[in-house]
Every structure is written in C-alpha cells, then in structure tokens.
C-alpha cells in the first residue's frame, strides 16, 4: 500500500508539542549538552499552592537548562504547559527571570549566553496573583535589557499557546518562532467569551480561534518571525538560524510608528475578518 507523500511527511515528524518541557529543552540544545539548573530534586516548589489544596510540582513547571547551541553557550527556559496550564507563579517566574538576569550578567562581562524561551503558558497563575505578575514584569524587563546584547529567541509550539502577561514576553523577544498549532494572544478564548459574551467569540469554535490567534495568522500578520512544522528538528534548526539572522533591525516592540499606523488603519466599529487583516497587516518583508 502506498502512502500519500503528505501523510508520509506527517508520520515522519518528531512532534515537539508532544514532548514535556524537560524533553523540549533537551531536544533544542546540542545533543548531550543539557544540564539542568534548579531542577526537581532542588524542590523549589510553590509555597502558595498547598495552602489552597493544590498539589505542587517539584520544579514548579519551569525547566532551566544550560547547554550549547552550535557550540555557543546557551540557556533554555522551558515552561511545562501540562502543569497548571503553564501558569507563572512566584517560583516559576523567579526561575525564568533569574535565568535571563544571569544571562544578562554574563553578557555584560563579555560572555554572551544565547537565551531561548520555550513558552507554553496561560499567563499568570491566578492562585499566586500579584507575586506571579511581579515575576512576569521582571521577565519583561530582563528580556528588554538582554536583547541589547544578544538575541532573545522565543518559541510558541502549542498546544497551550502563550497568553496573558507572557504573550508580552513573546512579543518582546528578538525573534519569535511559532507552529500552526500555536496560539498567541493577550486574552485566551474562554476569557474573551466569559467577559464579552458568546456573540464576540465562541470559545469552542476552534477554527475561528485559530483563524484569529493561531500561529499561521500571527506569522502572516507579522507578529511572529518564523512558522515551522511541529517537528523537534525543524524547531531546533529554526532556533539556530534565529541566532544567525536576528542581529539586525529594531525589535518588533520598538517599531512604534509602524504598529501605530497599523492600528490607525483599523475601524474599531467594523473590525476586519482574519483574511482581510492578513491583507491589511501583511508581513513587512525585510523589516
């Protein structure tokens, strides 16, 4: 029986989405170079979740690993989407911010470390409220400071996506890699439905949701720099090529004039459908 080429290609993929946060970090780094910092046996768990009768995870849902990318020193921060929706609490947020701040210190000393963020998160962990938000603000500040020295590369692979305050972290990155399965947005679909009503967005309408905030749409409208297959090797290659190419140009978040012009082109009373938005906000090639 012959297999159609598309199906053969699909079956040959080595899904990145199906990997745990730790496996993702192992696979992104050069083979054999993964070395975890503040790992599960250090038991840096949330002090707040047990008070609310919620079971902790020994790494609080964030894996920090040093290693190399094509021989260059690197640090990967990988969020576990399966644990509490990848939410950022006091400890997991401190691990993320701490990793970036140490990379900043190293960069200041002339020893640049390539930072990679594997983002799979609903945003702040509501049970830890302000402490999580404060940590996310530290992550933002660290990305902005660090990207002056070395590109900060972020990946949103799916299936959780990247939302809330952490979607701002993705937007601040020098280079953002997404898959078709990724979603990127400030508010998740269920929050939008709950706050604005079913007429605004049906959170069960998957096609609609992906047409609005899916990786393909985000790439087509210039909010992501690379659209890759859900394949560990393809994502690893995209991360490496991001460091090779991300040197020039202002970061997306500093292109205020062009982003303002984009908003000015929208009539908020009659917002464009996703396809029309692609035409209106087509990728700025070479930007």
């Amino acid at each position: 029986m012959s297999t159609p080429p598309e199906r053969a290609r699909f079956l040959a993929r080595d899904s990145f989405i199906e990997l745990t946060a730790r496996e993702r970090a192992v696979r992104v780094l050069d083979a054999g170079s993964f070395r975890e910092l503040a790992g599960p046996f250090d038991r840096l768990t949330s002090p707040w979740l047990p008070l609310q009768d919620i079971v902790t995870q020994a790494d609080d849902g964030v894996v920090i690993a040093r290693g190399t990318l094509e021989g260059h020193a690197a640090v990967v921060a990988s969020i576990e989407g399966a644990y509490q929706g990848g939410s950022i609490g006091e400890v997991s947020g401190a691990k993320l911010a701490g990793a970036l701040e140490l990379a900043l210190r190293d960069a200041g000393r002339g020893r640049p470390v390539r930072p990679v963020l594997l983002l799979e998160t609903g945003g702040v962990r509501l049970q830890e409220a302000n402490l999580g938000l404060a940590a996310i603000a530290e992550v933002h500040a660290a990305i902005v400071a660090l990207r002056r020295h070395v590109p900060v590369v972020a990946v949103v692979a799916g299936a959780v996506g990247c939302f809330g305050g952490m979607s701002l972290a993705a937007a601040l990155a020098s280079h953002l890699i997404v898959t078709r399965q990724a979603r990127l947005g400030m508010n998740g679909p269920e929050v939008i439905e709950q706050e604005a009503g079913l007429a605004e967005l049906d959170a069960l309408d998957r096609a609609r949701i992906w047409s609005l905030m899916g990786g393909e749409q985000r790439y087509a409208t210039g909010f992501a720099d690379a659209l890759v297959e859900d394949d560990a090797a393809a994502i690893g290659a995209a991360v490496r090529s991001a460091f090779a190419s991300a040197a020039g140009g202002a970061p997306r978040s500093e292109r205020v004039a062009s982003l303002s012009a984009r908003l000015a082109a929208i009539d908020a009373a009659h917002p464009p459908e996703p396809a029309a938005l692609r035409a209106l906000w087509a990728r700025e090639t070479g930007a």
Binding site: A21, G39, P40, V55, T56, Q57, A82, Y83
Partner: peptide
C-alpha cells in the same frame, strides 16, 4: 525523575 503533575498524570 519521571512524569508531570498534569491532569490524570503524576510525577
């Protein structure tokens, strides 16, 4: 160390 504290799972 194995597993994840995800829905229906354990570490």
């Amino acid at each position: 160390h194995v597993g994840v504290v995800g829905s229906g799972d354990l570490e």
